[in-house]
């Protein structure tokens, strides 16, 4: 390889000490190893022990995983994660596309609308959760309005019913995520060649038909990307459910999520760190599976400037 490299390339090593690149890399590399890879390796080890917060524990084989299978709260958390995926992925794939179509074309004030639609994204999930806790309170704005309209006789138990609470948390997740995915769609819409639309128009296709035959097929990769991104986020949900349920995980703790369970099991001086680590591995496996799908999608439909393209330019 060196023999084939042009003269300019071979000069590079002379312009820098051998240690230079590693000095540049040191802070970031140290952070990635110390706060991601090392703790992950440690999580794998701990998952096979009975470690507690204050004691390192001993090797217990697959005990933690056996316990997991018998733990009804683990199954509840998985069920809630699955419900969450089913509840938030379809609206988060479809609604932001409609928003993007509404704010794509220039028009008076459209830029302002784009900004307003994005505002929920920047707020912390805690703030958003507290805002909606108040909106959905038994004496909050939503119940108050419904009552004033005579639509209901008593308040709807948005935050105290097992399923309504979960649905409310999903609503908050969707509300907070719409603007984020809208921006991703806007970037993709910019790349749909105008000629395609014009050609379809010449062929006599109406707006709906043009959407179905031109826009939608061009959005397929982005839609798949957003499905995966929102599904990963759904399995990792914590704050929305935590805040809306007031740290109780709902009536009888039946709205618990995997991350809530991990936190609860591991907290306190006698926290069961071993079992929590085993649960963490399940969370990792679920998200890894979906993240690998994302990486595949991105390298398949890589836009200029992404990692793949940059890497090719240098070879």
């Amino acid at each position: 390889m060196t023999a084939l490299a042009p003269a300019v390339r071979r000069r590079a090593p002379r312009m820098q000490g051998a240690a230079t690149p590693w000095l540049f890399l040191a802070p970031a590399l140290a952070a990635a190893v110390a706060f991601s890879l090392y703790p992950f390796a440690n999580t794998v080890l701990l998952a096979f022990t009975d470690a507690r917060t204050l004691s390192p524990g001993t090797f217990t084989g697959t005990d933690n995983f056996v316990r997991m299978v018998e733990d009804h709260r683990f199954w509840l958390a998985l069920r809630n994660g699955g419900l969450y995926v089913l509840g938030v992925v379809p609206p988060l794939v479809l609604l932001p596309l409609l928003l993007a179509l509404l704010v794509r074309d220039k028009g008076p004030g459209v830029g302002v609308f784009r900004t307003l639609f994005y505002t929920p994204v920047i707020a912390s999930a805690v703030v958003v959760g507290l805002i909606w806790t108040w909106l959905l309170d038994s004496r909050g704005l939503v119940n108050g309005t419904l009552q004033a309209l005579g639509a209901i006789s008593g308040p709807v138990p948005f935050l105290t019913d097992e399923y309504l609470l979960l649905a409310s948390a999903m609503l908050v997740t969707v509300w907070k995520g719409l603007g984020y995915y809208m921006v991703i769609y806007l970037a993709t819409l910019d790349r749909v060649p105008k000629e395609l639309h014009e050609a379809a128009q010449v062929d006599g296709a109406g707006a709906v038909r043009r959407f179905l035959v031109v826009t939608l097929p061009a959005m397929r990769t982005t839609m798949a990307l957003i499905s995966v991104l929102s599904a990963v986020a759904a399995f990792r949900v914590f704050t929305e459910v935590f805040i809306l349920s007031g740290d109780t995980a709902g009536p009888g703790g039946r709205d618990i999520t995997l991350v809530m369970l991990i936190r609860e099991v591991s907290s306190g001086l006698d926290g069961n760190v071993g079992y929590a680590s085993a649960l963490s591995l399940v969370l990792f496996a679920l998200t890894l599976f979906l993240l690998l799908a994302v990486l595949r999608l991105q390298s398949g439909a890589s836009a200029p400037g992404r990692a793949g393209a940059a890497g090719r330019g240098r070879r």
Binding site: A32, V33, F35, S36, L37, P39, F40, N42, T43, L46, V232, R236, F238, V259, I262, R263, S266, V273, A276, S277, S280, L281, L283, F284, T287, L288, L291, L292
Partner: peptide, 12 residues
């Protein structure tokens, strides 16, 4: 490091 979600290593 990008593939490891923060929630999965918070205990460690």
């Amino acid at each position: 490091a990008l593939l490891v979600p923060g929630e999965a290593v918070m205990v460690a």
